[in-house]
Design a protein around this nucleic acid. Structure first.
Lengths: 193, 193
DNA sequence: AGTATATTATACCGATCAGTATATTATGAT
DNA sequence: ATCATAATATACTGATCGGTATAATATACT
């Protein structure tokens, strides 16, 4: 009965996500978006709404993929200590390997939009809280298995690791000497005992 | 021989700093700046150069004041542990007291500009390295006085505290429950032993 | 085949962007 | 008092911004 959409909504949203992730909200123009997404301006508006709504959709796409990725990494090793070590060291390795340096889309948004837009304050907070909950679950698993020493405060430690993760991600944007972040990672990991 | 400037360069730069600090580079327009600085557009260009140069001057002004402020706080207490405790707890108190929430201008710049502009990558990195050096000096003072236990790695700890400071500052933009950051601060401080 | 409907492409909207040309005004030396 | 100089205020530049009106195009049902 009607003409059907010619582009892949998912692929288009992914392209928008990549662009917003790299450049942020303000610095990304509608022209940038149409080029990257391979569709025309009216298609963006009819499918995703205005620029802010598209950004929100892109961020939601990012956070769910990001959370799923971290969950997978934390479950990859039977040892909780080893899982966290591989996770944090992999984070550093990833940032220093490539030339690009996008960091975390959610953290970028926390800095750029959360202080001026309640919707993104909530959205980014919820993501970080979700990460903290995953970290806490992982630590509690280590406590149950006896790998981690009893009496360790799983919640406080999980929250500390989230703060560290954010700090690491942000400082790497300034490209400090690798030893700087490696020392920090080592010290952080020493808290998981 | 010539007409003299009618506005206070320092006051104008301070107004620009406040604005860039609050809104970031892209979201601050020249019109915003002329309003806040109380001067006309050509006065900005003749005195400070273009928007990027003005931003750089504002950031430099911020980083020197910021570093001096932190130095003063770290030297305020004879006990190193107490000095760090007061510093970090004051940081949290400050953010949760007011309604506003600007965080740190340098961190904002690390996220917004450092990944795409080498000048700001260097500038922000140098500031964070300077903070790390101050932290390290403070820790070494505690080692010399015997307050801190011998064998403690002053450099690694200082770097970790800088990462934590950044993480705390950023997560507070998402306004998590205060207990979240307080737990993190407590855990961080436990590393200074 | 004809028609209703939604997607597409083009071109446009007023508003605002960073930056500047122009002309006026104020200063200090002669 | 005149003049050279620089700071000021106004108004403008072309470019780009986010968003949309319009018209052409393609589909699925009758």
């Amino acid at each position: 009965m009607v003409r059907q959409r010619e582009f892949d909504v998912d692929k288009a949203l992914d392209a928008a996500m990549q662009l917003f992730w790299e450049k942020g909200y303000e610095a990304t123009s509608l022209s940038d978006l149409t080029s990257a997404m391979g569709i025309q301006r009216p298609s963006i508006y009819s499918t995703f709404g205005d620029k802010k709504e598209l950004f929100e959709a892109a961020l939601r796409r990012y956070t769910s993929a990001h959370a799923a990725g971290i969950r997978a990494k934390l479950q990859h090793h039977p040892s909780v200590k080893e899982a966290f070590r591989v996770f944090f060291e992999g984070l550093v390795e990833e940032e220093y390997a490539g030339t690009g340096n996008r960091g975390c889309f959610c953290i970028n948004t926390m800095v750029e939009l959360a202080p001026h837009d309640a919707k993104f304050e909530i959205l980014t907070r919820e993501h970080e809280m979700y990460l903290a909950a995953m970290f806490q679950e992982t630590i509690e698993k280590g406590l149950r298995s006896g790998e981690l020493q009893a009496g360790l405060d799983a919640k406080a430690l999980a929250q500390t690791l989230v703060v560290s993760l954010i700090g690491l991600t942000v400082i790497m944007k300034a490209r400090p000497e690798r030893a700087f972040v490696e020392h920090s990672v080592e010290t952080m990991l020493s808290l998981i005992k």
